[in-house]
Deep mutational scan, measured.
Amino acid sequence: MQIFVKTLTGKTITLEVEPSDTIENVKAKIQDKEGIPPDQQRLIFAGKQLEDGRTLSDYNIQKESTSHLVLR
């Protein structure tokens, strides 16, 4: 499924993911596309910070959901 990640600069990154993917996996995909190390990434969805060990389905992130990327 596709999800979108919006950066603070207003850029939207499109990612191909599975509901069973962990947040860690998603951060690795963002690193592949954008070159941002996962330890600098914070992903926010529905006002919550997403934890590495959880999956997209844990957070009820469905296709075409948009989460926000904040850099630390």
Rank of each mutant, 00 (worst) to 15 (best):
I13C: 02
I36V: 07
K11A: 08
Q2N: 11
V5P: 00
T14I: 14
K6A: 07
S67T: 15
F45G: 02
R72I: 15
I36E: 02
T12H: 07
K48V: 15
P37S: 09
P37R: 09
F45Y: 13
E34G: 04
A28S: 11
S67R: 11
I13R: 01
Q41N: 03
V5D: 01
Q62D: 14
T14Y: 08
K33Y: 08
H68S: 09
K6G: 04
Q2H: 12
G35E: 03
T22F: 07
I30D: 00
R54Y: 13
K63N: 14
K6M: 12
I3Q: 00
N25Y: 11
A28T: 10
K29M: 13
R54C: 10
T14A: 09
I36Y: 13
M1G: 03
Q41L: 06
I23C: 01
E16P: 04
I3T: 01
I13V: 05
A28P: 00
Q62W: 11
T22D: 03
P37C: 07
G35A: 05
I30A: 01
T12F: 12
D39W: 13
S57I: 08
L15W: 01
H68A: 08
S67W: 15
E51A: 07
D32L: 14
Q62I: 12
K11G: 08
V26P: 00
M1W: 13
Q41C: 06
L50M: 12
H68M: 13
T55W: 03
T7W: 09
G53T: 10
Y59V: 03
G10Q: 04
L71F: 06
K6Y: 10
K63I: 09
Q31A: 14
D21W: 11
F4G: 04
I36G: 02
K27L: 05
D32N: 11
L8F: 13
K11C: 08
T9C: 14
V17T: 03
Q31K: 09
G47P: 01
Q31R: 12
I44W: 15
K63F: 11
V70G: 04
S20H: 12
D52L: 04
I44N: 05
T55P: 05
L56H: 01
H68I: 15
I13A: 01
N25P: 00
I13D: 00
E34I: 15
I61S: 01
P38I: 15
T66S: 10
K6H: 15
T22Y: 07
T14F: 08
K63E: 12
K29Q: 10
N60Q: 08
E64F: 14
D32E: 14
E16W: 14
S67Y: 13
E18P: 03
G35M: 04
S65Y: 08
G47N: 06
E24C: 07
E64P: 06
Q2G: 04
T9D: 13
I30S: 00
S20G: 11
M1P: 02
F4M: 08
Q49G: 05
S20R: 08
K48Q: 14
L56R: 00
F4H: 10
Y59P: 01
K33S: 10
G53Q: 11
V26S: 00
F4V: 10
L56K: 00
I30P: 00
L56Y: 01
V17I: 05
K27Q: 02
G47F: 04
L71K: 05
R54I: 05
K48L: 11
F4W: 08
P38W: 11
V26E: 00
T14V: 13
L8P: 15
I30R: 00
K29G: 03
R42V: 15
H68P: 08
S57P: 02
T12M: 13
S57V: 07
E64G: 15
H68G: 06
R54M: 13
T12R: 07
S20A: 08
S67P: 15
S57G: 10
K48W: 07
T9N: 12
E34K: 04
N60P: 03
G53H: 15
Q31L: 08
I23T: 04
T12I: 15
K63C: 07
K27A: 01
S65G: 10
F45D: 01
P19I: 07
G35W: 03
V17M: 04
K63D: 12
S57Y: 09
P37W: 06
D32W: 10
K29L: 10
I44K: 04
Q62L: 11
I30K: 00
G35T: 03
M1V: 06
I61C: 02
V5S: 00
A28I: 13
N25R: 14
K33T: 08
S20I: 06
A46Y: 09
K6W: 10
I44Q: 07
K11N: 08
L56N: 00
E64S: 10
L71H: 06
L71Q: 07
L69F: 06
K6P: 01
L71W: 06
L71P: 07
T9M: 10
F4I: 11
Q40M: 11
K6F: 09
N60D: 10
G35F: 04
P19D: 07
D58I: 03
Q49C: 13
H68C: 13
P19H: 06
L71S: 06
K11H: 12
R54H: 11
I44D: 06
I61T: 02
L15I: 11
I36R: 02
S20K: 08
P37F: 05
P38T: 14
I61K: 01
G10I: 02
Q62E: 11
T55K: 11
N60M: 06
K11S: 08
L56F: 03
R72P: 09
K33D: 03
E16F: 13
G35N: 07
S57A: 13
I61P: 02
G10T: 03
D21C: 06
S57W: 09
K6I: 14
S67I: 15
I23G: 01
D39E: 13
V70K: 06
E24F: 14
A46R: 14
M1S: 03
V26L: 10
T9A: 12
G53W: 13
V17G: 02
P19L: 09
T12L: 13
T55S: 08
E18G: 08
N25K: 14
I3P: 00
S57H: 09
L71G: 05
I23P: 01
L8D: 12
Q31E: 09
P19T: 08
K63A: 15
I30G: 00
I44V: 10
K63R: 11
K11T: 08
S20L: 09
T55M: 09
Q31V: 04
N25Q: 15
K48P: 01
F45C: 04
T14D: 05
K27V: 02
I36N: 02
P38F: 12
R72S: 13
K27H: 02
T22L: 11
N60C: 07
D39Q: 11
T12E: 06
I61F: 07
S65E: 08
K48C: 09
R54S: 07
I61V: 07
A46G: 12
T14R: 10
I61Q: 01
Y59A: 02
E24P: 02
N25I: 15
E18F: 14
V17Y: 02
L56M: 04
S65H: 08
R42I: 15
L43Y: 02
D52Y: 04
K33V: 12
V70N: 05
H68D: 07
K6R: 12
D21E: 09
F45I: 04
A28N: 12
T22E: 02
E18H: 14
F45W: 10
I3C: 02
Q31M: 12
L15V: 07
G47E: 04
I44A: 05
Q2S: 10
E51N: 06
Y59C: 03
N60A: 07
R42F: 14
D52I: 05
G10D: 04
T7I: 12
F45V: 03
L56A: 01
D39T: 09
L71I: 10
P37L: 07
V26C: 03
E16K: 09
Q40E: 12
L8E: 15
E51W: 05
